[in-house]
């Protein structure tokens, strides 16, 4: 006896993959259009350059994916990135050796995230408000350290900045991309093959149910903000490899880029649905828009923002339609 009909065996795309596939199609279309329109566009290095220029954003967006999947939001990431570059630059200038600096920076980011997560969970405050406060706090801390840009001349950091990892066929990547790729792989494994990852999805799907199912909701919620804080700090380190400076005005508004990348990657802002691969695609789409605009040459760079804005509208509407059909 079978009660429910088994969903069709025909070749049909499960609805949960639709947003990711739409983003993938968009990315391919943009890449193809760019290749037709501009000479020297359709090369592998163009895509690798997008990764090189946005490695820090990718790292931060991975952390953001955890938070959004669990049904939260983290507005503090951009400020934590700036704070990380600032702390790193200052300590290096005072003669600290680079490795302890990196460990300390990562620790600071994780602890900030842990604190915000704990406040969100135990005091039942909107994540929007708590992380907004965290955003002001971290940005303010940057300026108490210093108001000017602090250059980094540590040999380890400059090595990270200048090393080219050759991939053959005239293609290369920076060490930052390797870091980002490692983060993506570890995060994807965590989300899909560990209890923590599944609890993130469950909590984002229905927190009340997750609690009644006996899942550690408190630990999960605090963990996602800790992960996001850690990723922000790591993103800050990658950014300081890229910029070779610490500055309180680095990464202004980056939290919105990260959220944008996650949403364009097909993750539902209400939580519980989405894939890390989508976030990678989201970052690629954002980066490719910038590349196309710079190839176009005549367009003001603010057109990047306009296009991102339009894309976000489209994707949020699409999500709405998908969730509306589900009900």
């Amino acid at each position: 006896m079978t009660v429910a009909t088994v969903p069709g065996r025909r070749v049909r795309v499960p609805r949960r993959y639709v947003p990711v596939l739409v983003t993938a199609a968009l990315f391919l279309a943009m890449f193809a259009a760019g290749g037709i329109r501009y000479e020297g566009f359709a090369t592998g290095q163009i895509i690798l350059n997008v990764f090189i220029d946005n490695a820090f954003l990718l790292v931060v967006a991975v952390g953001m994916t955890f938070v959004i999947l669990a049904g939260g939001i983290d507005l503090s990431v951009g400020s934590v990135v700036a704070l990380s570059t600032m702390v790193a630059a200052t300590l290096l200038k005072q003669g600290w050796s680079p490795w302890p600096v990196m460990v300390l920076v990562l620790l600071i980011g994780a602890v900030l995230g842990l604190g915000m997560g704990a406040i969100i969970h135990y005091f039942e405050i909107q994540p929007f408000i708590v992380t907004l406060a965290g955003m002001f706090l971290a940005r303010g801390l940057c300026y108490t350290i210093g108001t000017r840009s602090i250059p980094i001349d540590d040999p380890v950091f400059t090595a990270f900045a200048q090393t080219r990892i050759d991939l053959g066929a005239d293609m290369w990547i920076s060490p930052g991309v390797v870091v980002a790729a490692a983060v993506v792989v570890v995060a994807a494994y965590t989300l899909h093959y560990t209890r923590l990852g599944r609890n993130v999805y469950a909590t984002g799907g229905n927190e009340q149910s997750a609690l009644l199912m006996g899942l550690p909701v408190a630990r999960t919620k605090i963990a996602v903000y800790t992960i996001s804080g850690f990723c922000s700090a790591l993103g800050g380190l990658v950014l300081s490899f890229y910029m070779l400076s610490g500055y309180g005005l680095h990464a202004v508004g980056m939290e919105l880029d990260a959220i944008g990348a996650v949403v364009i990657g097909g993750t539902l802002l209400t939580g519980g649905s989405g894939y890390l691969f989508g976030t990678v695609l989201g970052v690629l789409v954002l980066g490719l828009i910038q590349t196309i605009i710079s190839f176009e040459g005549t367009l003001n760079s603010w057109w990047t923002r306009i296009l991102i804005g339009l894309l976000l509208f489209v994707f949020i509407l699409m999500q709405r339609l998908i969730t509306a059909r589900r009900r």
Binding site: R198, Y201, G204, G205, S273
Partner: peptide, 11 residues
């Protein structure tokens, strides 16, 4: 029903 509709039946 206190389950998570976004997850698979298995989960």
């Amino acid at each position: 029903v206190n389950l998570c509709p976004n997850l698979s039946v298995t989960e």
